[in-house]
Design a protein around this nucleic acid. Sequence first.
DNA 1: AAAATACTTGGCTATTTGGCCAAGTAGTGC
DNA 2: GCACTACTTGGCCAAATAGCCAAGTATTTT
Lengths: 108, 108
Amino acid sequence: MMDPRTQARLAIRANVFKALAHPSRLFMVEQLARKSCCVCELTEMIGADMSTVSKHLSVLKGAGIVADEKRGLQVHYRLKMPCVLRFFDCVGEVVETNAKEEWELVKR
Amino acid sequence: MMDPRTQARLAIRANVFKALAHPSRLFMVEQLARKSCCVCELTEMIGADMSTVSKHLSVLKGAGIVADEKRGLQVHYRLKMPCVLRFFDCVGEVVETNAKEEWELVKR
DNA sequence: AAAATACTTGGCTATTTGGCCAAGTAGTGC
DNA sequence: GCACTACTTGGCCAAATAGCCAAGTATTTT
């Protein structure tokens, strides 16, 4: 019946996945993997309101995936847990396999 | 400004993460990694309504993470993309690091 | 063919999430 | 101190998610 400890462990882990479960946040992680950026740079690239971007970043920060540091007027974010990049290969594989299978179904 | 192709690519990938972003679904993936199960077994373990479990499974199936097969009255699900298990090590690492840091803050 | 089992799907409600705008905070430069 | 820039936070609304119950489907059993 799934004891409370297991339940709690899974809930905490689910939060990490939840943090990555948004296109803009994936984009941010990819960018930050290349180089640290201030909020303004990411805002520019994504093209949403800065407040929106800031909130996304705080979700990633809350999950422990990125870290921030104030430099003068700007706040710079960096990828704190580069191991999340390892996810992306597998996700790419999943997506590719799905697409191939769907194609096979529709093809004829 | 994030072109539509990038946008679409990220949205598809985000769906895979979204599928994993729930405690019960993580539990299912872990179980299915050990052995294939029917819906009834997972329902028993999780302790929710069978309809709820069935819906969770269809989310995982929609993301291409699991596959199903009917055997008599039962439907058996299996882990189709075992590479998602590789995520779990990193997620564990993230969670552990977060916990350690939070502890350092509260300690004194 | 009727009953039982193992699911899935539809309907409903409560909660969460995502977005923008407006207002607040924190440094910088005059 | 006052204005300016770079953020963050609160408020609000629209949309998505998660849960249960009830109803529907498919297969087996009697």
